[in-house]
Design a protein around this nucleic acid. Structure first.
Length: 970
RNA sequence: GCCCCGAUAGCCCAAUUGGCAGUAGGCAAUGGUCUCAAACACCAUACAGUGUGGGUUCGAAUCCCACUCGGGGCACCA
């Protein structure tokens, strides 16, 4: 039987034994991957250290190009075709850069600590180290098949103790620093201690430094250190069993990973003083070549707002300080609100309600103290989720106290309400209901007075009682805002007039007035909070911190690094019922008593210590990996300064320094990218790196989406098994609905790169992914369309190699003029596209040239060689193979990229269109160098044009040489 | 609610700074060549007037305004 029905593949092989088939592609690809690996083709020499290459000469004379992909987690699920999109793009660019004379550093490491790795390990019941190592090996294998030109010597992993010793070392640098606001930079903490010791800087209570106990010094220095442990309100997530950073909590109060509820809880945790860098993190964005959308997100996240602090007196002794961005509306402040947990509440609450208090202000309580306690209890019991849901309804309660508006002198009631947050500004506001939507809603709910102080420009009138909502435009003038003997320049004693001033001018006037009297000042506030840096996990970097028997904190010396992740019996996290807000975190590392309790000599003899049992968040390892790529095996320094300067140092084109290209998804806009910039700046301040920023050019690649098919219940069904009939879709006979979605396991529509490589080869996959569309937009995967890229490679192969004999079929003839023009136009265009990361159009131009050769019927060797070199970054395996068959002994990885001859880039003649009133009436073949005047004369003389104009007078002629003439007739 | 980004053939996408919308490219479609037949491959053909409505201009996919739809970010931040 088998003799009569040969497999189709065998039949094909018999007729076309040297056709570029999947089998041939597989053979070529694995052979070249082995050669690249063996010869170290993509190893990038360093200027100094053990990766310097004396044979490479002076590398600093060569332009550098440091190209990075965002650090991947080694997922246990394996890759789908969406994952390598960015890796292929950076590889294409890196190969192009290599062929244009750059020393290219491109590698890929693994971010292997953290929740995903740990959860996978817990699920599969294997130790995280074992499963993570296996996942890394699997991912390396999958990526190797794609032919990525990485320097394997630099492929670091965050879980390697030789890597995380430097993560811990950087932590110690940050811990041992403080931010000197006067100098505008971080300085070693020792210099601050010296100031306290000498008395140059006073301690808070005036005692001498020597008189403070160890714990007191700890506490004082904790107010300055850039990394500090403190009891603060944090995001506690019982479902994950850990605390989370603000950036890891979604707007509706759930964990970004796992979608568990998050509760506010007061816990002692490690924090990073990223807020000290708020201004620099905003200002230096201007130096970066990043997408505007990402810069905007960072600016919004940091949330700088300029305004003023204003004191309101309460009774004789107390005062409430508020932050406002609208001091110009101070005359309109008719009540105040404190956050429920504000520290001043207890001291201003009177014993009894003042006379005439409306019933709805008291919450039904007999005394102010009772009302406050009741409201606080109710607010504390609410989860963030509930607060969000109820946000539209304003709640609060009167404290019984009145404050004095410092400009109008009015007595204003003081409330507590949960719409004022303790964590922002001063935790207290002046409420201007006429000009703030939130205050307006609250005032309506509690029947509070309103005063219009900004003239409405929409005709609503100046009586807020008639309004539906606040009027909050900046673009108007101030009214009803005068006190005392207000003169127009505001100089009269105690007099103040804002009337008639613009908002901007009024802000300046009132701020100056307040400052003169010492009851206010201009100030800046930020939305950004300090970064919560500790987690209650097993699979993370331990802190290099111990506590002595008095509870005093000690940083371990460098010589004791790394502090290795200890073995424990149970590495799973302590998780709780997701809604158990009363639970509290427990650290897995505390289970190993032998590890926790140690005897160390930290300079004053061997003593007993307890280790810190929190671990660092998974962001820690990715905050500085660009530095280690540069000098991966340096045992004595985090990175050799000579190497850092060469690869990252500031240059004319990148004023802040940083990697030349960083490609990754937009989802890291405020997490990783903000943290990494912060660490880099600290290291810069302390003199460890010359660059100010880690990543100069950022590029966000789009997502590869895929069709998702859902059954009637809305559950995804396996996309591969769906059938299409008459534009409708069926799975197992049942109708299903199609929609666009992310590619992934959970939506049952993942396609593995290996499957595509099996069917067509890796070069086809690379080419297809690059030609799907612009790199920065998301687009749907279409398996049926992959064959188009495959056909192109087959045609390219056939233009150079005989499918029947495997012999070269290129000719030694001189290329004709038309072919030369096609070639040089392609070179010119593709070079521009490569440099601009427009790989989709680069592919199109290569196909166009190849199609020209197909039509021509034969391929001159000179054209074949240039075409192969041009295609090499996109489809490197087939290009290397053709290059070798064309008679070249060396890899083309470092060959020179073709350069266009300008003489052939322009056409000999171009078609000029002649329009009459915008309608095309004639075409002229003209030289590209023709002048406007010549062209105009030529056009007006053209018989078709003359006929079209007829008797109509020519009013105007617009000539745009060499492509267009437009004649306007009257 | 506020702020960003986008919309071009059946589909994915081009269009050098306002200048012929596709001899940019690909998929799918239709017809043909090859084949006993099919697959592969090859050759050829057709297909939109740029989301909607205004405006600026000699001329708009491109610039401006409004709206619709889709994607993303923020969300009681004073």
């Amino acid at each position: 039987m088998s003799e009569t029905t040969p497999a189709s593949g065998a039949a094909e092989a018999a007729t076309e034994p040297f056709r570029y088939s999947a089998a041939l592609a597989a053979e070529i690809e694995s052979r070249w991957q082995d050669i690249w690996e063996k010869e170290g083709t993509f190893n990038a020499p360093n200027p100094a250290g053990d990766l310097a290459d004396p044979a490479a000469g002076d590398v600093t004379a060569k332009p550098h190009s440091f190209i990075m992909d965002m650090f991947p987690y080694p997922s246990g699920a394996g890759l789908h075709v969406g994952h390598p999109l960015g890796y292929i793009a950076t590889d294409v660019f890196a190969r192009y850069q290599r062929m244009t004379g750059h020393n290219v550093l491109h590698t890929l490491g693994y971010d292997a600590f953290g929740l995903p790795a740990e959860q996978y390990a817990v699920q599969t019941g294997t130790h995280p180290r074992v499963s993570t190592d296996a996942n890394i090996a699997n991912m390396r294998q999958q990526l190797r098949r794609l032919g990525l030109g990485h320097d394997p010597r630099r492929s670091i992993s965050t879980i390697d103790p030789e890597y995380y010793r430097w993560t811990q070392w950087i932590f110690l640098q940050i811990f041992n620093s403080w931010y000197d606001a006067a100098a505008g930079k971080a300085r070693p903490i020792a210099e601050l201690i010296a100031q306290f010791e000498s008395g140059e800087r006073a301690t808070p209570d005036g005692r001498a430094w020597a008189e403070l106990s160890g714990a007191e010094r700890d506490e004082l220095l904790g107010e300055y250190r850039l990394a500090y442990a403190k009891e603060v309100p944090v995001n506690w997530c019982p479902g994950l069993g850990t605390v989370l950073a603000n950036e890891e909590v979604t707007a509706d109060g759930r964990s970004e990973r796992g979608n568990f509820p998050v509760f506010k809880s007061n816990l002692r945790q490690w924090m990073m003083r990223i807020t000290a860098y708020s201004d620099r993190l905003i200002a230096d964005l201007d130096l970066l070549d990043w997408p505007e959308a990402i810069k905007l997100q960072q600016r919004n996240w940091i949330g700088r707002s300029e305004g003023a602090r204003v004191d309101f007196a309460v009774g004789d002794a107390e005062k409430i300080t508020v932050f406002t961005t609208r001091p110009d509306t101070l005359f309109g402040a008719t009540y105040m609100v404190l956050a429920p947990e504000h520290g001043l509440v207890d001291s201003i609450v009177p014993a009894a309600w003042p006379e005439g208090v409306p019933a709805e202000w008291t919450g039904g309580a007999a005394t102010p103290a009772e009302a406050v306690a009741g409201y606080r209890a109710a607010a504390a019991a609410k989860s963030d989720v509930e607060r969000q849901v109820e946000a539209k309804v304003k709640t609060g309660v009167f404290t019984g106290a009145y404050a004095v508006n410092p400009v109008s002198g009015a007595s204003v009631p003081v409330f507590i309400a949960d719409y004022v947050l303790m964590g922002y500004g001063t935790g207290a506001i002046m409420a201007v209901p006429a000009h703030d939507h939130r205050d307006f809603a609250f005032a309506r709910a509690f029947a509070l007075p309103m005063r219009c102080v900004v003239e409405p420009t929409d005709g609503r009138g100046e009586d807020p009682a008639a309004w539906d909502d606040a009027f909050d435009t900046y673009d108007s003038v101030i009214v009803n805002s005068s006190r005392g003997e207000g003169s127009s320049d505001g100089s009269a004693v105690d007099g103040l007039t804002l009337d008639g001033l613009s908002v901007v001018d009024a802000k300046a006037r009132v701020t100056a007035w307040l400052a003169e009297r010492g009851i206010g000042e201009g100030t800046v506030n930020y939305r950004l909070r300090d970064w919560l840096f500790s987690r209650q996990r097993y699979w993370g970097e331990p802190f290099p911190i111990v506590y002595d028997e008095d509870g005093v904190m000690h940083a371990l010396p460098e010589s004791m690094l790394p502090v290795e992740v200890p073995e424990v019996d149970d590495y799973s996290p302590h998780t709780y019922d997701p809604y158990d807000s009363a639970s509290s975190p427990k650290t897995p590392l505390s289970r190993n008593e032998d590890w926790v309790n140690v005897e160390l000599d930290l300079g004053d003899g061997v003593r007993k210590y307890r280790r810190e049992t929190n671990t660092m968040p998974n962001w820690a390892g990715s905050c500085w990996y660009e530095l280690r790529y540069i000098d991966p095996s340096n045992g004595s320094r985090v990175v050799d300064p000579a190497n850092e300067r060469y690869w990252l140092g500031p240059t004319e084109n990148k004023p802040a320094g940083g990697a030349d290209l960083y490609v990754g998804g937009a989802e890291h806009a405020v997490l990783h990218l903000l943290y990494a910039r912060f660490w880099h700046k600290v290291l810069h301040d302390l003199g460890h790196v010359s660059s100010v920023e880690p990543f100069h050019k950022l590029f966000n690649q789009g997502m590869i989406t895929a069709d998702v098919y859902r059954d009637e219940r809305g559950f995804p069904v396996p996309a591969a098994e769906v059938e299409e009939r008459d534009g409708k879709y069926f799975w197992e006979g049942e109708p299903v609905k199609r929609e666009a979605g992310k590619m992934g396991k959970s939506l049952k529509n993942a396609i593995a790169p290996d499957a595509i490589a099996d069917e067509y080869g890796a070069d086809t996959l690379r080419l297809y992914e690059m030609s799907m569309g612009p790199l920065d937009v998301s687009r749907p995967w279409d398996t049926r369309a992959v064959v188009g890229s495959y056909r192109f490679l087959q045609r390219l192969w056939r233009n150079i190699v005989s499918e029947a004999t495997g012999e070269l079929v290129v000719t030694d003839e001189q290329p004709d003029e038309a072919t030369l023009r096609a070639l040089h136009k392609a070179i010119d265009g593709i070079r521009g596209d490569m440099a601009g990361l427009r790989f989709n159009t680069a592919v199109a131009k290569a196909i166009e040239l190849n199609n020209h050769l197909v039509k021509r019927g034969s391929t001159p060797r000179a054209v074949a060689e240039q075409l192969v070199l041009m295609v090499a970054p996109l489809a490197p395996h087939i290009a290397e193979e053709l290059w070798r068959r064309l008679g070249h002994g060396d890899s083309l990885a470092h060959a020179d990229y073709p350069v266009a001859d300008p003489a052939y880039v322009v056409d000999e003649a171009v078609t000029c269109v002649v329009q009459i009133k915008g309608k095309v009436k004639a075409r002229l073949e003209v030289a590209p160098t023709i002048s406007d005047a010549e062209l105009e004369a030529l056009a007006l003389a053209d018989p078709a044009v003359v006929a079209a104009i007829g008797d109509a007078p020519v009013r105007k002629v617009i000539a745009r040489a060499p492509k267009l003439v437009n004649i306007v007739t009257g």
